[in-house]
Design a protein around this nucleic acid. Structure first.
Ligand code: MN
Ligand code: MN
Ligand code: MN
Ligand code: MN
Lengths: 260, 260
DNA sequence: AATAATTTTTAGATTTGCCTAAAAATATAA
DNA sequence: TTATATTTTTAGGCAAATCTAAAAATTATT
């Protein structure tokens, strides 16, 4: 049996290890969990006792295969619930994280699979994050930060790095939700701010910070029809991802290489 | 803030008070919660401290208006989740209780209302139990135990008293799910067992125990078409309940009078 | 290499929720 | 009404998960 607290720690460790290839430190986990280093040390002992992490005093931790499997399953559940909340219950993408944080801990035979089935086996959650399949395999995509585009590039919004409600609401206001089309018109050298044209033809300026928190996929085929044909976000997303390959679960894939 | 354990105790007290009009005893709560009397006493002190129950040593407990409201909301959540699990995710009615037992504790603004909306404001859960509305009002129905029918009565299955998986599965096997039609053909005086005809024309014999755990609604109009016209369970249930009145929340309604 | 700064662990408490065993109160029976 | 049985509470303890403060280990800096 594994407690909710233990599950949350596993997920935190997974997320840290995902970004930085090295072992997760006590402090990093404490920051992610919004708790104290002392509490983390306590928990690390428990998780090591259960063989969910490899833990050496003062050396940080790594998930064992067992721990990785549990963390992956937890993320799968979290993101599937998020899809349900947005697609079926009508929540906005900035409202669902806290709910999914609770729902992910619901245990029950067949629940996840039925959820997955009901939702049509989605590969990405409402924030564009990949949903591992039942065997723990991840979909991934060729996405880059908006800030790395070259002037003249056309692209489609595919995800966010900052998941805060404030950022998501800002994107909604700018008409930059998932699937939104855009073209980079200009980069101001002074502060690296970006002038773009959005799908509806409007021109707006975005700060460097936005450029570093918004993932996009560069589109070549689409640019000819840009602004003329109206395509639904769902259609666009499907177009963008239909060629995406899959990697085996277990071995974590390398952090996305940003830029060229 | 209220913990999951506290919520579960409130629900247990509510359920006990629902059946017996008097104060819920420590032992009754312990039985319902499958724990010890000592643990219950501990918790009663905490709930009384939070003004969720009226508690006098050795005198049992009653929910305060505040406690009643919380318990009602919890039951609403539990039963709405059960509807989702059965109607949307495809679970059988004997599989959903444990899941709903966890899901009922998920907290979040607007979750219950959106769930209710998505499900089409159901008035009864997959076991035929009423779902209080957002204001805490209960639907109720004119149902009696199968065992109290007179020979010759026609009826429709509307609910169960025993919610165990074993009983629910048995009912499935006998084609006595919610909405199933039946006619009481004979009562054997020897052991009070019942011979009935089910919707598909088959005759079966049910034990006295079944008769005391299955709720039905006597039907007059329907008997003419019995066995000829095929009606969906959903249609039948709707027909049966469309005239049901509602009672105000807060004051608990009297336990159902069985028999005449 | 020694000192300073930082990180991590330990020590000791606290809260929640549960347990068993014993004591106290209440209800039932003789 | 006294004795007996039952119910309920108290006492004492335990495990999970958290905290603060202090000690120990590691890392960075002179
Ligand atoms: Mn969580
Ligand atoms: Mn997400
Ligand atoms: Mn529960
Ligand atoms: Mn139910």
């Amino acid at each position: 049996m594994i407690s909710q607290a233990e599950e949350n720690y596993l997920k935190a460790i997974f997320k840290i290890s995902e970004k930085e290839a090295k072992a997760a430190t006590t402090n990093a986990i404490a920051a992610e969990m919004q708790t104290t280093a002392a509490s983390v040390t306590d928990m690390l002992k428990r998780l090591a006792e259960k063989n969910l992490i490899d833990y050496e005093k003062y050396r940080g931790v790594q998930l064992t295969p067992e721990g990785n499997k549990l963390a992956t399953a937890l993320i799968r559940k979290h993101r599937l619930w998020e899809v349900l909340l947005v697609e079926k219950l009508g929540f906005a993408w900035d409202e669902v994280h806290e709910l999914a944080e609770q729902l992910e801990h619901v245990q029950g035979n067949g629940l996840v699979d039925r959820l997955d089935e009901f939702l049509g086996h989605p590969k990405f959650d409402p924030h564009g994050d990949p949903i591992p399949d039942a065997e723990g395999r991840w979909s991934f995509r060729q996405q880059v930060l908006l800030g790395t585009l070259k002037v003249g590039d056309h692209a489609v919004v595919t995800g966010v790095d900052d998941h805060s409600a404030a950022f998501l609401q800002y994107l909604d206001q700018m008409h930059l939700a998932l699937g939104a089309q855009l073209e980079l018109l200009e980069r101001f050298p002074y502060d690296q701010s970006l002038r773009i044209r959005t799908g509806n033809g409007q021109e707006i300026v975005l700060s460097e910070k936005v450029g570093q928190n918004l993932y996009v996929k560069i589109s070549w085929e689409a640019d000819r029809d840009f602004g003329k044909r109206i395509m639904s976000p769902a259609f666009l997303m499907a177009q963008l991802f239909h060629r995406d390959v899959q990697r085996r679960g277990g071995k974590r894939f390398a952090p996305l290489q940003l830029g060229k």
